[in-house]
Structure formats: structure tokens, C-alpha cells
């Protein structure tokens, strides 16, 4: 058991180091600063004191960058190993395929969550300096649900990377993520407005696609609405755990059957 945990930790550490070695986080952080800093001093019609617009833009950037980093890290966990054939020495060691898969997943998730933590700390700093609200309960809950979002996203991209090409994985997962964040909440209404096969397709998407919009708390954070009920938060995190477990189970099956 301890040996397996050590193996998992070693595999996860590699993925986290890879993110920081590639300096993706530094680039996106710099880009966010370049966008947000001039806006922080903006006074529309000569009136100062507006802050929600910048909070909204900052959170939007956090979401975009977390998707880019989450997808980028997890979709590249296996393909380079297959291309450079370093997967052979890895599997030749006394490490099970399931352990490799789960270790890589934990690494991808850990790397994405560590980047997310940096973003949320920067956001709390921005909101704290401008409004005096540092770590509000709703912000902490938003972070928790955002971690839930990354749990699903990394599992989905990992599964994609084992059954599709890297570019196809990035495209499909990117479209699914953006599509569900934009339309996930409206799918039942959109399906009800359709007739024939269009309705069935939309209902199938509604039931089977990952409801990533469950994790989007931006509206509550920006407009200072109260937190989501604790049990609703738990239900959403439970959904994330179940969906990620399902993706990992399918990924494990694909990995076991894969011929290198």
C-alpha cells in the first residue's frame, strides 16, 4: 500500500514539475496582469469606485486559463510517452498500468489545481486591495467548486488522450467545456423548444455530457450573492467525483487494451 502511494506520488510529482518547467503558468499570469492592470485604474465618466467589472473579467480570465492549463497538462500526459517510447521503461518497472494512469491523473490534477490556487490568491489580493474583501466564504466555495471542475476536466482529457490524437482531444474537450459552460444550463429549455431528432440529441447531451456549469460560481462571487447551500455543494462535488471516476474507469480500460 505504502509502496503504491509512493509510486503514485512520484508519478504525480513529475506532471507537476512538467507544468512549472514549461513556464505556461508564468506566461498566462503575465498576460492576465497585462489585461487587468490598466483596467484597474479605469474611471468611466470620471466616476471611480466600480469594481465588479474587473472582478468579472479577472474571474473570466481565471476560468479561461484554468481550462487551457487543465486541458494542456492532462492531454499531454501520455502522448509524449508514447511518441518517445519512454512508456516501455515505465511499464517495465513493477508498476501496474492502473497505478501509472492514476498517478498521471493525480499529477495533471495537482498541476492544474496548483495553478488555480495561484490565480485565486492573485484574485483575492486584487479584491482585497480594491474592496477590502480578502477571502470571502463565497470565494472559498468558488475555489472548491472550481477544483471539482478541474477534477472532471482532467479526467475527461486523460480519457481523450488515450483514445484520440492529442489535437482531437484538445478540440473535442475544449468544445465540450465551452459548450457546456455556455449552454449547459439552458439545455432542457432548448430541447423543449425542438421537435424530432434535434430534441433527442439535445436531451442525450443533457443526460450524458459533463455538466461543467455546475461549478461556475462567478455570478455569486462578482455580485456578492450568498454561498450555495452546503449540501448542494457536496452534491456537485459528488457529481464531479462520480464523473471523473467514470472517465478514469474508461481510460483504465482503454490503457489496458492499448498496444504500443
Amino acid at each position: 500500500m505504502i509502496l503504491r502511494l509512493r509510486q503514485l506520488a512520484a508519478l504525480a510529482r513529475l506532471a507537476v514539475l512538467e507544468l512549472y518547467r514549461r513556464k505556461d503558468l508564468f506566461v498566462v499570469f503575465l498576460l492576465a496582469m497585462v489585461i487587468l492592470l490598466p483596467l484597474a485604474f479605469f474611471e468611466p465618466f470620471g466616476v471611480s469606485g466600480a469594481s465588479r467589472y474587473i472582478n468579472e473579467l479577472a474571474l473570466l480570465l481565471i476560468w479561461i486559463f484554468s481550462i487551457i492549463i487543465g486541458l494542456g497538462v492532462s492531454a499531454r500526459l501520455f502522448p509524449p510517452e508514447f511518441e518517445s517510447r519512454t512508456i516501455y521503461p515505465l511499464l517495465a518497472k513493477p508498476v501496474g498500468r492502473g497505478t501509472v494512469l492514476f498517478g498521471k491523473y493525480l499529477g495533471g490534477l495537482g498541476a492544474s489545481v496548483s495553478a488555480l490556487l495561484v490565480f485565486y490568491l492573485a484574485y483575492a489580493l486584487l479584491a482585497g486591495v480594491r474592496q477590502g474583501a480578502w477571502f470571502t466564504p463565497v470565494l472559498l466555495q468558488a475555489f472548491l467548486l472550481h477544483v471539482g471542475f478541474l477534477t472532471v476536466l482532467t479526467a475527461l482529457a486523460l480519457l481523450g488522450s488515450l483514445v484520440l490524437t492529442p489535437s482531437a482531444t484538445l478540440t473535442l474537450c475544449g468544445l465540450t467545456t465551452v459548450g457546456m459552460l455556455a449552454f449547459g444550463q439552458r439545455l432542457p429549455a432548448l430541447a423543449a423548444a425542438q421537435t424530432g431528432p434535434g430534441r433527442s440529441i439535445l436531451l442525450a447531451i443533457h443526460w450524458f455530457a459533463p455538466h461543467l456549469e455546475f461549478f461556475d460560481m462567478r455570478q455569486r462571487v462578482v455580485h456578492a450573492w450568498p454561498c450555495v447551500d452546503g449540501w448542494v455543494c457536496a452534491a456537485v462535488l459528488g457529481y464531479a467525483a462520480c464523473y471523473a471516476a467514470l472517465c478514469l474507469a474508461l481510460a483504465s480500460r482503454a490503457f489496458r487494451r492499448k498496444r504500443f
Binding site: 466616476v47 466600480a50 467589472y53 455538466h211 461556475d216 455570478q219 455569486r220 450573492w225 452534491a235
Partner: peptide, 25 residues
């Protein structure tokens, strides 16, 4: 679940809070 996570009710901006509308206007 979606209806529980995303705010369904609404409120109206009043007084000094109205400055939050200005950047978009």
C-alpha cells in the same frame, strides 16, 4: 441542481451601487 447553484432570483441596484453599471454603459 443547476437552479440551486446559479442565482434564480434578482435584485435591483440602488444608490451608490449604480456606479457598477457605468463601465458597461
Amino acid at each position: 441542481l443547476n437552479a440551486r447553484v446559479h442565482v434564480q432570483a434578482h435584485r435591483h441596484t440602488e444608490g451608490e451601487d449604480a456606479r457598477e453599471l457605468l463601465p458597461w454603459l
